[in-house]
Simulated scan of single mutants.
Amino acid sequence: MKGVPSANVGVKISEWYDAVNKFDVKMAIKLKRQVEELLEQMEEDQNVLIYYQLMKFRHDLTMNYLFPSEASKPLEKWEYLKKSEGKGQKLTRLMEYYANFFDGMHHFAEGDYINAIKSYRQAEKKLNRVVDKIEQAEFFYKMAEVYYHMKQTQVSLYYVNLAYDIYKKHDTYIVRSIQCLTVIAGNYIDLLAYEKALPYLKKALLNAEEFNNKPMITKGLLNVGCCYNAMDEKTVAIAYFRRAIKIGKETDAKELTQ
């Protein structure tokens, strides 16, 4: 007999989503299982079922991003949402935000940047429904990311600074803070403003060292080395590259081919 309140399941889905955003793989997988067990006992609630499908899609996107070699097949639009659309079920504005936001992430992962931006812009119209600052930061970061890949430098800088201003206030989102610093630096590098990029790359490296994340340290050392190389400071660049090789060997970092 189904008796678990749908609100309880909604809270658990939010915890799951938080773990996904933190790239906490073990916790995300654990919470996903817990949510699916609760759904078996939940009182009927169409919105929570849609929320689950959206978050499952977000979970799968993240796992495919973190472990691309294990991705077995291209992701399809969440099944329950497709069925709901066929029945003419109306989504709440918050659900519309998530639907468009995750759709944009899917297009981005496929390298379809134009449609990614289209979906993100649709999501942005509903962003005022999102009260959580971290969730807002995630949206800003994704906008910065796609514009960076399209070499829309100033727009990317605008969004990534919005994201960084939020993330830097939360120690548990250090990975995203480092990624924001790297995107800021990348935009300045595209402008050939290496002197402006270097402090952000060094700060990203320092944060990675404090976090003791060796893969990110390796990437950080390579990024700083590449920046010095572009500035024609070859001796300094080589020193960073050698450090990157030493640490990268410990984790078999794929970046060492650089």
Rank of each mutant, 00 (worst) to 15 (best):
W78K: 09
N100I: 08
R121K: 13
T218S: 06
D18N: 10
E195H: 10
E15T: 10
K22Y: 07
M105Y: 13
M95T: 11
F101E: 02
Y120R: 05
L31D: 03
A239R: 04
D18S: 11
K118P: 00
V160P: 01
K77T: 05
F140Y: 12
G3Q: 12
Y164P: 08
A239H: 05
F108T: 07
L221H: 08
H59T: 07
A163P: 03
D190C: 01
M63T: 09
I238H: 00
A144Y: 02
I245R: 08
A71R: 14
H107A: 11
E37G: 03
T182Q: 09
E138C: 10
R129P: 00
M231A: 08
K87E: 13
T153H: 09
F211G: 03
V146H: 04
A237N: 10
L38K: 07
S84E: 15
A208C: 03
T172C: 02
E135Q: 14
M95P: 02
F140V: 04
L191S: 05
H170K: 13
K254S: 12
Y188L: 07
E44M: 00
N207A: 15
A99P: 00
D112I: 12
Q136P: 00
K118L: 08
T182V: 12
N229Q: 15
M95R: 12
T218M: 06
D45N: 11
A137C: 07
Y52M: 02
M1A: 08
D190M: 10
R242V: 07
L61Y: 12
W16F: 15
W16K: 06
C226R: 15
N187F: 03
I114F: 08
K202C: 06
L222A: 06
A253T: 12
E70G: 03
H106G: 07
K203Y: 06
R176A: 14
T153I: 13
E209F: 07
L221N: 08
K168R: 15
V25W: 09
Q136G: 00
I50G: 00
K169R: 15
L222V: 13
I114Y: 10
V130G: 02
L206H: 13
Y51E: 03
L157T: 05
E209V: 05
A197M: 04
Q46T: 14
L94A: 13
I50N: 01
E37H: 07
S69E: 15
Y159V: 01
L127C: 06
Q46Y: 03
K196V: 06
A237W: 11
Y65F: 15
Y148L: 04
H106M: 12
K83E: 14
L201N: 11
L222Q: 04
V146Q: 04
A163I: 05
L91E: 08
E110V: 04
I166V: 12
K125D: 06
I13C: 05
V183Q: 06
D132W: 09
I114C: 00
K56I: 15
K90M: 12
I50S: 01
L201C: 07
I238Y: 00
E138G: 11
E255P: 03
Y164C: 08
E195D: 14
E210I: 12
Y167N: 06
K90F: 06
K126M: 10
E85W: 05
Y98G: 02
K118T: 11
G86I: 10
Y228W: 12
V20P: 03
I114K: 14
A123K: 01
E233C: 11
F140L: 02
R243Q: 12
L206K: 15
K202I: 02
V9D: 01
N21P: 00
L206M: 14
